[in-house]
Simulated assay, not measured.
Amino acid sequence: MSRSEALSDLMQQIFTHDESGRSVPCVNPKLSTWWLSEDVETQEAAALACTTCPALHDCRTYVDEWLEVGGVWAARIPATKGRHARDLLAGGGSR
């Protein structure tokens, strides 16, 4: 599967969850800028919000296969690629 096909599949999963009433934080118009913010505290807030997302597993599968260097993906922030938001909350954050 190509990168564009994998991303299209992920987007379909996200919108299916969202349309069925399951909250997908990154497509919430009030929060969507968090995932592209350059502010580390905002990125950490986005990563924490990801932990409740019904598409988290699908997002993590995508980003593990196709590394995204910008933005928050699957509860991972650019400054700590490969670390999960729970790691940040356990005191290993960038603050």
Rank of each mutant, 00 (worst) to 15 (best):
V40N: 00
C59G: 01
T51N: 05
A55T: 05
G21F: 02
S23R: 15
C59A: 11
A90F: 06
T16N: 12
S2R: 11
R86Q: 11
L48F: 10
C50M: 04
Q13M: 11
Y62M: 06
E41M: 10
R60K: 13
P25W: 00
M11W: 10
D39A: 05
E44W: 09
E5P: 00
P25N: 04
S4N: 12
R86Y: 13
R83N: 12
S32Y: 01
E41Y: 09
W34A: 07
W35I: 01
A49G: 07
A90H: 07
V72F: 03
G71M: 07
R22Q: 15
V27L: 02
V27M: 01
R3W: 09
V40D: 03
P78Q: 00
F15Q: 11
S23C: 09
A47S: 07
R86P: 04
V27P: 02
E65R: 13
P78F: 01
Q43V: 00
P78D: 03
L31E: 14
L36F: 06
C26F: 14
T61M: 08
G91Y: 01
V69D: 11
C50N: 04
R95S: 14
G70M: 11
S8N: 14
A75G: 10
C59Q: 08
V72G: 02
W73P: 00
A74E: 03
S20I: 06
R3M: 12
R60D: 07
P54T: 01
H57F: 10
L89E: 11
A49D: 02
A85F: 08
T16W: 02
C59F: 08
T61Y: 00
E19D: 15
V63F: 02
K81C: 04
D39I: 10
A6P: 01
R60W: 06
S23I: 09
L7F: 13
K30R: 14
E5L: 13
W34Y: 13
F15N: 12
N28S: 09
D39Y: 00
L10R: 08
G71D: 07
A74K: 03
I77Q: 07
S32G: 00
A74C: 04
F15W: 15
D18Q: 14
E19Y: 09
S37Q: 08
D18E: 14
G93R: 13
W35V: 04
I14T: 01
Y62T: 00
P54N: 01
A45C: 06
